Amino acid sequence: MNAKKNNGFRAAFGNAFLGFDYAFRTERNLKIHFTVAVLVITAGALLKVSALEWAILMLTIGAVFVTEMINTAIEYTVDLASPEKHDLARKAKDVSAGAVLIIAASSVIIGLIIFLPKLIALF
């Protein structure tokens, strides 16, 4: 096995951007998360969230993106390691998808905690 190593800091960043670009172009759920993130950022700007609320929102958005991308990487790896149907392969994919579900549900709750009082105050 002759794996090619990164040729430095710049190459590592380049590979990371290529990975994000590929995931964004090919993964429907990542596009959905991106759309929701744009809506959340827009709502945050319009509703004038505090610096602490911005920090929480950015960490939450980042956690959703990271979890979705790790889920995608796990799915690719499982498909490579087990191209045939296998119960353990299905379980690995289901567990990683469950992680995305948990962070997505948590992000909705965080959004409600931050935005609901501001929206109620408008009406």
Score class of each variant (00 low, 15 high):
residue 92 A to W: 04
residue 92 A to T: 11
residue 77 T to R: 05
residue 63 A to W: 14
residue 69 M to H: 06
residue 87 D to A: 15
residue 55 A to D: 10
residue 35 T to W: 11
residue 79 D to Y: 11
residue 42 T to R: 10
residue 56 I to N: 08
residue 119 L to D: 10
residue 114 I to D: 00
residue 69 M to V: 10
residue 121 A to S: 04
residue 48 K to N: 13
residue 77 T to F: 10
residue 77 T to P: 00
residue 48 K to L: 04
residue 109 I to D: 01
residue 94 D to C: 11
residue 105 A to T: 14
residue 36 V to N: 04
residue 57 L to I: 07
residue 110 I to D: 01
residue 87 D to K: 08
residue 100 V to E: 15
residue 109 I to Q: 01
residue 88 L to H: 02
residue 64 V to Q: 08
residue 79 D to T: 09
residue 102 I to T: 14
residue 58 M to T: 08
residue 110 I to Y: 01
residue 83 P to H: 01
residue 118 K to P: 05
residue 111 G to F: 04
residue 99 A to R: 13
residue 33 H to P: 01
residue 97 A to S: 15
residue 54 W to I: 08
residue 49 V to M: 12
residue 108 V to D: 06
residue 122 L to W: 00
residue 36 V to L: 03
residue 83 P to M: 09
residue 50 S to T: 15
residue 115 F to W: 10
residue 107 S to Y: 05
residue 118 K to R: 10
residue 33 H to A: 13
residue 113 I to A: 04
residue 53 E to P: 12
residue 112 L to G: 07
residue 114 I to G: 00
residue 89 A to H: 01
residue 80 L to Q: 04
residue 95 V to E: 09
residue 53 E to N: 15
residue 100 V to H: 13
residue 118 K to A: 01
residue 55 A to C: 11
residue 53 E to Y: 06
residue 67 T to N: 15
residue 59 L to I: 06
residue 85 K to S: 13
residue 33 H to G: 07
residue 122 L to K: 12
residue 111 G to T: 03
residue 57 L to M: 12
residue 52 L to K: 14
residue 82 S to A: 14
residue 120 I to P: 00
residue 45 A to D: 05
residue 47 L to R: 10
residue 78 V to A: 13
residue 91 K to E: 09
residue 117 P to T: 02
residue 37 A to F: 03
residue 53 E to K: 14
residue 37 A to K: 05
residue 79 D to A: 07
residue 97 A to T: 11
residue 40 V to H: 02
residue 81 A to M: 11
residue 74 I to F: 07
residue 71 N to V: 00
residue 122 L to V: 01
residue 56 I to E: 03
residue 70 I to Q: 06
residue 44 G to A: 11
residue 97 A to C: 09
residue 105 A to Q: 08
residue 91 K to R: 11
residue 97 A to Q: 15
residue 89 A to N: 05
residue 111 G to E: 05
residue 109 I to Y: 01
residue 64 V to D: 10
residue 72 T to H: 13
residue 57 L to Y: 06
residue 108 V to K: 05
residue 106 S to G: 13
residue 102 I to K: 15
residue 49 V to P: 02
residue 57 L to R: 07
residue 72 T to G: 05
residue 35 T to N: 03
residue 119 L to F: 12
residue 52 L to T: 15
residue 57 L to S: 07
residue 42 T to F: 11
residue 108 V to S: 02
residue 60 T to I: 03
residue 87 D to Y: 08
